[in-house]
Nucleic acid binder design. Structure first.
Lengths: 202, 202
DNA sequence: ATTCGAATAAATGACCAATATGTTCGAATA
DNA sequence: TATTCGAACATATTGGTCATTTATTCGAAT
């Protein structure tokens, strides 16, 4: 295995350990010592791989985000129609987070990680990717004639924020009620998008 | 004029002055002395009307919110159909805030005043009212057959949060782009609500 | 009932020392 | 040569005291 490759793997294990420790103690209280201990290595060794604590946090979180995003992307790739892709995107993102305790804990500790204000978002690159993904689904749906021809450039970021809001609520208050909110929220947005040739009242 | 009535008026002027000072300096930096000076009265006199600084802030903001809400309610009352009411609600709320510099400044200083998490919302009563207003419009629309029969109890709070998000964005970044986002956001939600018997593609 | 000035209580900020933590570095190792 | 480590160094945090500011109370005056 090439050196650079080996290093990459090592860095990933460091991020994983860091994520775990940060999830438990939060950025302030977690120490480099804690993370080194988690890895069974000396503090100083870490500095062979990272610049400083802040960067470690950012990169570790970014890594967690990217992993999340990859899973969602894979799930979407398995679908053909835009409408299905939209639904799968929403549900998979939700489901993945349900299974990643650490990332969830970090998100709950520090909701500002999600971009309320895209301008000051430390993970803008990743979130831009998410919005791009959403954008492509919207465009596909519009091309295929199942979505209304909305202003994609304006609507995609909004929908992303709305989704973040839904996720935050559902995980902050994981009760029946918020579960329903999530489903109904997705349904509302999807209905806003869809073109319905004919609709019967009931 | 009755004593209690006179007192009420006085309290309102105090709230108004407080709002102005808090808007300029923020809660921490604004002092009771500043507010007293704004009113041209002794600090101690304020304590005849208020309990403490914190309460003054909360009540002053609540007063500002209520005023805002009243204006929106009035505008809605002038409309008949649910769909129009919905639109007017969104636009009037936006427009009112545009005209109230102090309230806007306070909101921008402290976005948490708006309930991301309804549970820990200090103005839950007022926001409950807002959601109730929205709920009644939704129900009316559903009864009248122009809105889909959504789960109002789940959708109303979500729409409220979404609206808060739109407002925050638009005022935090008052540029062309966000203006468009506001309009498109409202349009998306309204489309999600509406029943369209027939729709032609174009 | 309402206002005020003076007095008191509580919070805040500046400063310092002690400790904990982040970061660097040269020697050791594989 | 790439990687690890322990010790040394630098920086940040904490706890504690004092001085100052600010919040709040109270009795006298209107």
């Amino acid at each position: 295995m090439r050196r650079a490759q080996k290093r990459e793997i090592k860095v990933e294990t460091i991020y994983k350990a860091a994520l775990k420790v940060f999830a438990e103690y939060g950025f302030k209280k977690a120490t480099i010592g804690d993370i080194a201990a988690e890895l069974g290595t000396a503090k100083s060794t870490l500095y062979f791989y990272i610049k400083d604590k802040r960067e470690l946090y950012d990169k570790a979180v970014a890594c967690g985000f990217r992993h999340w995003q990859d899973k969602v992307r894979d799930a979407i790739a398995a679908e053909k129609e835009a409408e299905r892709q939209f639904l799968v995107m929403a549900r998979k993102a939700y489901e993945y987070l349900a299974g990643d305790r650490h990332l969830r804990s970090i998100l709950m500790r520090d909701p500002s990680l999600f971009p309320l204000h895209p301008a000051q978002d430390p993970y803008s690159e990743i979130n831009r990717d998410s919005i791009a993904l959403l954008t492509s689904i919207l465009e596909k749906g519009i091309r295929e004639g199942c979505f209304r021809p909305v202003n994609v450039a304006a609507v995609a970021p909004l929908m992303f924020s709305f989704y973040v809001l839904l996720i935050q609520r559902t995980y902050m208050f994981p009760d029946e009620e918020h579960q329903i909110m999530f489903e109904d929220g997705i349904d509302l947005i999807l209905s806003g998008l869809k073109i319905r040739e004919k609709q019967s009242r009931e």
